[in-house]
Design a protein around this nucleic acid. Sequence first.
DNA 1: GAAGAGTGTCAGTGCCTGCTAACGTTAGCG
DNA 2: CGCTAACGTTAGCAGGCACTGACACTCTTC
Lengths: 118, 118
Amino acid sequence: MGLTEPDPTDEVLRALAEPRRRTILRLVAHDELSAGEIAATFEVSRTAISQHVTVLKNAGLLTERRAGTRRLYRARPEGLAGIRAFLDEMWAGALDNARRLAEAERGLSDDVEAERTG
Amino acid sequence: MGLTEPDPTDEVLRALAEPRRRTILRLVAHDELSAGEIAATFEVSRTAISQHVTVLKNAGLLTERRAGTRRLYRARPEGLAGIRAFLDEMWAGALDNARRLAEAERGLSDDVEAERTG
DNA sequence: GAAGAGTGTCAGTGCCTGCTAACGTTAGCG
DNA sequence: CGCTAACGTTAGCAGGCACTGACACTCTTC
């Protein structure tokens, strides 16, 4: 059990950091496509695309379905839930920060006013 | 101007792909901190943290404010807007895909049988 | 079972990236 | 001006990642 526990959020974000992988995700979000159809979209070799697909699959962003000799891939929206939570947390934190700034400004204007009226 | 136009979404996602950078973002989302305070949180050198901060700043995820010799950093929630749009697009596409699947399931018996009996 | 189509996997290579150490820069103090 | 504090910046190095080419695997068809 000495395996380094992989952070799901980290794996998803690293998977999304690659432009080609995002393109693949867009492709299979709209339609279910085979590995060959996906690879035909790009100029790089099918090997590279296969590796990208593997990364996306390991990140939980893709679902594989075998049909004959072909393998069909489809986007998996649940895989993005963690990222969404992260973004919401960040946004809430930043808003909280903005609120603090607003309060600080109010307290600051008091001081300023004390100076001005004093 | 032969500069390669940098895709904002790509830059932001690559910035978020680093665990330490996400930690930094969490820190400055809750409080405004100086470079030294941020660096003190980590075990690595301040140089590394400074570089991470530069990446976050270039991605538009951070705001710098100079106060004396110190530089205070704060999260910038607007920088995440692009990512949110991307996620929403992905999610909508995947839901559209799910709808197609539901429709397909209704009239699908042929394909399923071909697959199962194959 | 042999052949062919459709894909995944492995080894190797070049680039990119995160890290450290040394140096340069700016602001405050005497 | 000389000195210190708080940073950013640069050069150099080690590890990781994306890519290619060759090989292996799995179904289908004959």
